[in-house]
């Protein structure tokens, strides 16, 4: 009975972590929230906003200011309706990192006074990552790559972003198919005992590694097709041509909403500066 329940629990977790789930979460993160307030803002404005909130907190030690920034990005993350998995990863990442550092510093004779600087560090890390979550998952990939291109990022980067979002679902499906076919033909070791479980884990890892062999060959074929298709369209010349760039970026437009967003953020930050000067 006990083992049965145990098995059920682990199966449940594995269910949650299946490739399908991951794929859905990633796609939802990319395309699932076109209708939020954040997604409708101009990408250039959002990137500029991110540059301020992603860099300035690193250089400021004032707790009021940092708290203000943190609350601001918390609200924008909520507005952007980011997928749950991403937020979970963020939480685990931030707190495991600084928590681990704290525990180790206890071994070296630190005490509770170590908490305060670590709290500041956590606040900084959290603010910067939430700001980037807002911008990079809140925005549509195409708008994001247009915004980056406007700031003069290399064309290859914006191409990579657009390409990545289109190719990823296909690649994941293919990888899953290969894994399934391995599983159909394979003979996994028994995993009732502890040793068996370890052997099973190694078997799984080995299978994933081996699955990359057919995947590499398939992707090589596909990337040749992609590049040839791009060449037919004259991609390499278009990438450096100014007129093409201008046509591509013609859809970007700054509206009053964008300015309003900036002004409200500015108001909040200046309020937190005011608080830090008063107290």
């Amino acid at each position: 009975m006990e083992t049965a329940r145990h098995k059920k629990l682990s199966e449940n977790i594995l269910d949650k972590l299946s490739l399908d789930f991951l794929r859905n979460q990633v796609l939802k993160n990319a395309y699932g929230n076109d209708d939020t307030v954040i997604a409708r803002l101009d990408p250039r404005i959002l990137l500029a906003w991110y540059l301020v909130l992603g860099i300035v907190p690193w250089f400021v030690q004032d707790l009021w200011f940092l708290m203000g920034c943190f609350l601001l990005v918390l609200v924008t993350t909520k507005l952007a309706r980011v997928a749950g998995l991403v937020l979970l990863l963020f939480g685990v990442g931030v707190f495991s990192q600084t928590g681990y550092l704290f525990v180790v510093s206890l071994f070296f004779g630190g005490d509770s006074s170590t908490i305060a600087p670590l709290l500041v560090l956590t606040l900084k890390v959290a603010t910067c990552s939430l700001a980037s979550i807002t911008v990079f998952s809140g925005l549509d990939p195409d708008r994001l790559s247009n915004g980056l291109m406007w700031y003069g990022c290399p064309e290859r980067l914006s191409f990579s972003i657009s390409y990545a979002y289109r190719i990823l679902p296909m690649l994941m499906e293919e990888f899953q198919n290969i894994l399934l076919s391995f599983r159909m033909r394979g003979n996994p070791p028994l995993h009732e005992t502890f040793r068996g479980k370890i052997r099973y884990l190694f078997y799984q890892v080995k299978m994933i590694m081996q699955a990359f062999y057919p995947l590499m060959l398939n992707t090589a074929k596909r990337s040749r097709t992609t590049v040839e298709a791009l060449e037919i369209k004259g991609y390499r010349y278009a990438a450096v041509n100014k007129t093409v760039k201008k046509i591509k970026l013609a859809t970007l437009r700054v509206t009053y909403n964008d300015l309003l967003f900036l002004a409200v953020s500015f108001l909040w930050i200046s309020l937190s500066i005011l608080a830090s000067t008063l107290f």
Partner: peptide, 27 residues
């Protein structure tokens, strides 16, 4: 050639990107 370099670029990007996505997601 330039286009072959682009092919290698696209190939590595797609494969390694997929792999790092897994590592990011797997606890």
């Amino acid at each position: 050639t330039q286009s072959q370099k682009l092919m290698v670029f696209v190939l590595t990007m797609a494969l390694y990107g997929l792999a790092t996505l897994f590592t990011e997601l797997i606890p």
